[in-house]
């Protein structure tokens, strides 16, 4: 194990796929972000203007910050709802536990696009929710409150991504040895202290992983805000997308994608740092 050659060979073997299939294409992209456009042709150059444009223009920078804030909120909602659910599922035993876990994961099997469509028709002015509320006399007339605003975006994203939060939390909870719980109880700890000093710290890596998944999925999702957010549903992914489409300014799009990449890297670094600090 100490000899260098086998180590290098093994490294080459292990690394060739991730490097060739991921880093190489992304490298191409980063290079592209320094190019510029001339007469609808991409011209190789070393051009920092793409990045300067981003920071100079509030349209782009503001949208970027707004998107980060949106993703933070989505993550918070998913964690607040997902954690108790994972905990509840974990506390069941036998078949019920895995049945419940299955129930939380299954909605993922349904097409994302179809889900969005259904949610939208349920919450719309003419949708089921309004009809029920009007039918029960809670609302006087159908309301637009549920659709085409930021709340709708948050709610819809939470519905889409909550299973991704529950699963990793559950998986770490499941790893907690039963005897540790017993030991804590035998030593006279209250259920709350057991949770606070045993369960919570041990499940923290999974909790962080769950938060990371939700945040990142929300960050990459530019369809949901647009579909349910009405005129407010404009996110950074959408801005990037627009550069690859009509505007046909791939270098500028690549530069903004690079900024998103840097952000994501920063977040994952923070997440893995805090997760590693929590390992016992």
């Amino acid at each position: 194990m100490e000899r260098l050659l086998p180590r290098v060979l093994l490294f080459a073997l292990a690394a060739c796929l991730p490097l060739g299939l991921v880093l190489l294409p992304i490298g191409t992209f980063l290079v592209l972000s320094f190019f510029h456009m001339e007469n609808s042709q991409i011209v190789p150059s070393f051009w920092l203007a793409n990045y300067a444009n981003f920071f100079r223009n509030w349209t782009y920078l503001g949208t970027f910050l707004g998107t980060l804030w949106l993703c933070t909120q989505v993550t918070a909602i998913c964690m607040l709802l997902g954690y108790p659910i994972a905990w509840f599922v974990w506390r069941r035993s036998g078949t019920l536990r895995y049945f419940l876990l299955l129930l939380t994961v299954l909605p993922l099997f349904m097409s994302y696009i179809v889900k969005l469509y259904t949610i939208r028709s349920v919450l719309g002015l003419n949708g089921l929710l309004n009809q029920v509320l009007v039918g029960l006399g809670i609302l006087e007339k159908p309301s637009l409150l549920f659709m085409f605003n930021q709340h709708a975006v948050l709610g819809t994203m939470a519905v889409l991504y909550i299973p991704f939060a529950i699963l990793p939390i559950f998986l770490t909870l499941e790893r907690i040895p039963a005897n540790l719980m017993e030991a804590s109880r035998d030593l006279g700890a209250s259920p709350w202290s057991t949770f606070r000093y045993v369960v919570f710290p041990l499940a923290l890596p999974g909790t962080i992983a769950g938060a990371l998944f939700t945040f990142v999925l929300a960050l990459g999702d530019f369809v949901t805000p647009q579909m349910v957010g009405g005129t407010t549903g404009f996110t950074f992914g959408r801005v990037i997308w627009s550069q690859f489409g009509l505007a046909y300014n791939w270098p500028f799009g690549a530069a903004m994608a690079a900024i998103l990449l840097a952000t994501a890297l920063l977040i994952i670094a923070l997440a893995s740092y805090s997760a590693s600090r929590q390992r016992i």
């Binding site: 992914g237 994608a257 890297l265």
Partner: peptide, 9 residues
């Protein structure tokens, strides 16, 4: 990376 980057990229 592929999971973190927007899928378009």
């Amino acid at each position: 990376l592929p999971f973190l980057l927007p899928p378009i990229v």
